[in-house]
Design a protein around this nucleic acid. Structure first.
Lengths: 344, 344
DNA sequence: CTGTTAGCGCGTTCAC
DNA sequence: GTGAACGCGCTAACAG
């Protein structure tokens, strides 16, 4: 079987079946208006010719598509994979396909992807977070295509929004740490401006400790190629400068790296130092020491966001922005009782 | 700024600029044939109108696209993310965009995705592994579109192939284990038939031990939602049935789960039991005990595969299938010397 | 139930 | 350097 230069088109099927193009079109789409006999014959021939409809022509003719365009910061890690899974399952059952690209946290890359997406006339577009270039926002606001912003929360999204309040998450962690008597907080994440959610959480943490007139939050932002290594190295940095009594991490993977670092240095957790992760990732389920962390309902977020977007696509005029609940998971990497190290 | 119902088209730009459609087309594509003055004015108006070209119309007119369609088993884990990163970087610099979907290891889902991909007339298609439905293979072989199969290796791919020999990887691990005196091997992975690469590695392992007339390889295949938990539970299963003296895992994450399980049971590694992972994942960099594992050059694989596919796209008639080298990384979770437990 | 006509937005071809 | 025709493959709207 040779590779044909030009794939079969609807006309080839029609000629071969001795019917008109329209009958083939109807038969293939499964709409009314073709006798069962013809339909079966047409389907047989289409399969035999390995006919695949041309989406470009179809989308051009009907001026819409059942395509959802998705933009993520990265494929690495469970976080976006979880959100993605929730969304995709929802879209798949509704008959929508999704095309995905990652921006590696670069707003210009996001803009380029949004342009490409718009050029396909998708049914909906999903962006991660709120940190877009102004041109991206203008482009999307001028377009009739529904837009979902997910993972971060704002009351004034481009269109619709489902996320969590990261600033509040930082406060939550800070309040917990304060109540346990921790006074010298540290924060380990990726370089500033890279991930604005991390910055929001750090801000929440800072404000809580500032209000308590406590020491300011030390932060380390090493650049490693893995979360684990970043957590390990960031912890080393903090321990070497002004040793904090509690370290908060961008996520559980980094916190695990930190735990390994403390272990290597002979520090005992939580008596010498407290560790707090974020996201309640899979890793936590096998650790001997339960990690103190914040549970984020990522899968639910994906499902909720996708459902809201589908509602907009199906004509609902406005869907209010949603903020999903956060839950602090108290583990064994922070003290259980207010400690003695309160005042310096 | 209201949301216009119909996005601006090339004709709108032309009318507004007082020129013909063709001048706009030329100006926007940056081809010869427009005076610089006109070009600047046209670009200004296009931007002002937030004009985005319609890809459907364009692809229909020129009968090709710079789109690469990619099919992955899953977004979870680092393995496919690493391969993907290598590929995407290569495509991006060559001006190709990629659209990705996951099959969750279901050949029928892969077929559906391939159909959709073909309907977009992409420049190339990438599939993970070799386990396709026969219809998928027929469809692709009948198409003129270059196809890359990645991650698994075969000398007879659909078109081109870059991967590793998973059977050989299993042998490698088996030979190493044998040489260290291990005689009762176990293997922990996901349910059978799910991931054919895991099955190949198990087969390689089995054959090595069978040739040595050693005990047959015990296998556990629990179904958990995370690799860590799967490794933990699979290890429990094996330890409870016929306790092996060495356990091999589908990947490092599972091996880590296994390590945690052994630790929880008070078993010491490697004196009581040896553990072997796969893939040399990021996690390993922070562990206090270096993991014995197999290094796979995933990023290189992505780059190589993408380059080969681009070569085919650019007219190279045939590109030979490539098998990338494997390297056993000897860590501290297996014995360093042949042990005493040789003969029973 | 079936076929014909017109047009989706853009690029190629060929005039001017 | 510029523009008018035509066609890419398909489908909505109509006619038979």
């Amino acid at each position: 079987m040779g590779r044909r230069k030009h794939p079969a088109k609807i006309e080839d099927v029609a000629r071969r079946a001795g019917v008109s193009i329209m009958s083939v079109s109807r038969a293939l789409r499964g709409v009314e208006g073709v006798s069962e006999a013809k339909r079966a014959e047409i389907l047989r021939i289409a399969r035999q010719l390995k006919y695949v409809p041309n989406s470009n022509a179809r989308s051009l003719a009907v001026a819409n598509s059942n395509l959802i365009g998705i933009s993520l910061p990265t494929f690495a890690g469970e976080v976006f994979a979880d959100i993605l899974n929730g969304m995709r399952r929802t879209f798949a059952t509704a008959g929508y396909a999704s095309v995905i690209d990652t921006t590696e946290y670069d707003p210009e890359a996001e803009l380029a992807w949004v342009r490409r997406l718009l050029s396909w006339q998708p049914a909906g577009i999903i962006l991660t977070g709120l940190d877009h270039s102004s041109e991206t926002v203008e482009l999307l606001k001028a377009s009739p295509i529904p837009v979902l912003e997910i993972w971060d929360y704002t009351s004034e999204p481009i269109d619709i929004c489902v996320g969590i309040d990261h600033y509040r998450a930082g406060q939550l962690i800070g309040e917990h740490a304060l109540s346990l008597g921790y006074r010298r907080p540290g924060f380990v994440s990726t370089p500033r401006g890279f991930d604005t959610r991390a910055d929001s959480r750090l801000a929440g943490l800072r404000d809580v400790f500032a209000r308590a007139r406590s020491a300011s939050v030390l932060s380390a932002r090493p650049q490693c190629d893995s979360s684990f290594a970043t957590g390990y190295q960031g912890t080393e940095e903090l321990l070497d400068t002004g040793p904090p009594d509690i370290i908060c991490y961008l996520n559980d993977h980094m916190a695990f790296g930190g735990l390994m670092c403390c272990q290597a240095r002979g520090l005992s957790v939580p008596s010498d130092i407290g560790l707090v992760g974020f996201n309640e990732l899979d890793l936590a389920s096998v650790l001997p020491k339960k990690l103190t962390t914040v549970r984020t309902l990522r899968r639910l977020m994906g499902i909720t966001g996708a459902s809201d977007l589908l509602a907009r696509i199906n004509g609902v005029a406005r869907v209010p922005a949603k903020s999903l609940p956060l839950e602090l998971i108290v583990g064994e990497t922070t003290r259980r009782q207010p400690g003695a190290g309160g005042e310096v």
